[in-house]
Design a protein around this nucleic acid. Structure first.
Length: 344
DNA sequence: AATGCGTGGGG
DNA sequence: TCCCCAAGCAT
């Protein structure tokens, strides 16, 4: 990099945080639901829980789940004592179920240790807590000057410095650039401000550069390429997979099955199915099976078409017989809710 | 390092 | 309808 470019980068790094925090404070006065500046940090349990839920998940989707979880389990000790099956049931529909399994494991470790570690390294050693979440908890709950890098920050930083390297290869470079922005004071507010900027102004499609607090500092804006950044490596096409789900029920009960702890929908309650990656599995009981239709579902890396078969419940050889009164389809993952809706 | 892992909303 | 993708982590 040229000396001139380096000087410019230094100037941007020094001016970005003050401008962003000024914008954030002004917003706090306008938006009544945001805590005003100077408010004491949120308690570590709630920060942790919300950050886990927000991994690859929108704020809108998380909201009701967070309310329910904190009402059911107000403290990490309460969550540590919870029945894992109930946690899985409450998580159902939110996706990425390894998060729920790790949530329980993490709560138990934290409760046993007497509380959350207050530094990034200690947090990152806990199950389900990686580079992003450890930095976020350290900055937001413990006021540590850690650099928080999520998808929003990657986008803001790639534009601010006009980084052309495609993601995910650019991640290391973006993290280093982001760390040059992080202030020693108010690191938690700064992290929140970067993410809020990415969510409201520096958006993926049509960034509102005209009202951006960092407009004068932004290299991509100067070059007119802000909407094109960050660049991304082309993604692979989604293969189509097929399988069968069996719904065995009468007016009193139905047949469900706990899926294996690892892998797709791991640990969730589901209708018995064949595999859908080549492996085959026999039906959980004798028929006659009647075709109820087909469910289509798109996962992260493949599309699934599931033939749904229905039969009267009769002497199942595997699974759990569950009484129909008290059965709530919302305790099933999204795919299985579709199966239930089709079969009934 | 690349791949596996959900779901729902917006353009 | 399609494509994009959202406050990532584990292996």
């Amino acid at each position: 990099m040229s000396d001139k470019a380096k000087l410019r980068e230094t100037a941007v790094s020094q001016q970005a945080a003050p401008r962003l925090l000024e914008w954030y404070d002004r917003l706090a006065r306008v938006l009544p639901w945001r805590a005003p500046p100077g408010t004491p940090p949120m308690d570590p349990y709630r920060v942790w829980l919300s950050e886990i839920m927000l991994q690859q998940t929108t704020v809108a989707a998380v909201k009701s789940y967070f309310q329910r979880f904190t009402a059911l389990w107000p403290t990490v000790q309460a969550l540590a004592a919870a029945d894992e099956a109930q946690v899985m049931a409450e998580w159902a529909g939110l996706g990425y179920y390894a998060r729920a399994r790790n949530l329980v494991a993490c709560a138990r470790r934290v409760a046993a240790a007497g509380g959350f570690p207050d530094r990034r390294e200690g947090l990152a050693a806990l199950p389900g807590i990686g580079p992003y979440t450890s930095a976020a908890i350290a900055a937001i709950a413990f006021d540590r000057p850690e650099t928080v890098v999520d998808g929003n920050v990657e986008r803001v930083v790639s534009r601010l410095f006009a980084v052309q390297t495609p993601l995910p290869a650019a991640r290391r470079e973006l993290t280093e650039l982001a760390s040059t922005l992080t202030p020693q004071t108010r690191p938690g507010d700064f992290a929140q401000a970067m993410m809020d900027l990415g969510a409201t102004i520096c958006t993926p499609r049509n960034p509102a550069c005209a009202i951006c607090p960092l407009m004068e500092l932004c290299a991509a804006r100067a070059q007119g390429i802000a909407p094109e950044l960050p660049r991304r490596a082309p993604k692979a096409a989604k293969p189509l997979r097929t399988g069968t789900a069996w719904v065995a029920l009468d007016d009193r009960a139905l047949l469900l099955e706990r899926r294996p702890a690892r892998g797709l929908l791991g640990g969730t309650l589901a209708f018995p199915t064949t595999g859908w990656d080549g492996t085959d599995l026999a039906p959980p009981q004798d028929g006659p099976w009647e075709a109820a239709g087909e469910v289509r579902h798109v996962f992260t890396h493949f599309e699934l078409r599931l033939s749904v078969l229905r039969a009267p419940l009769a002497n199942p050889v595997r699974g759990e017989v569950v009484p129909r009164d008290g059965f709530d389809p919302n305790t099933l993952p999204g795919l299985m809710r579709k199966v239930w809706a089709l079969a009934t």
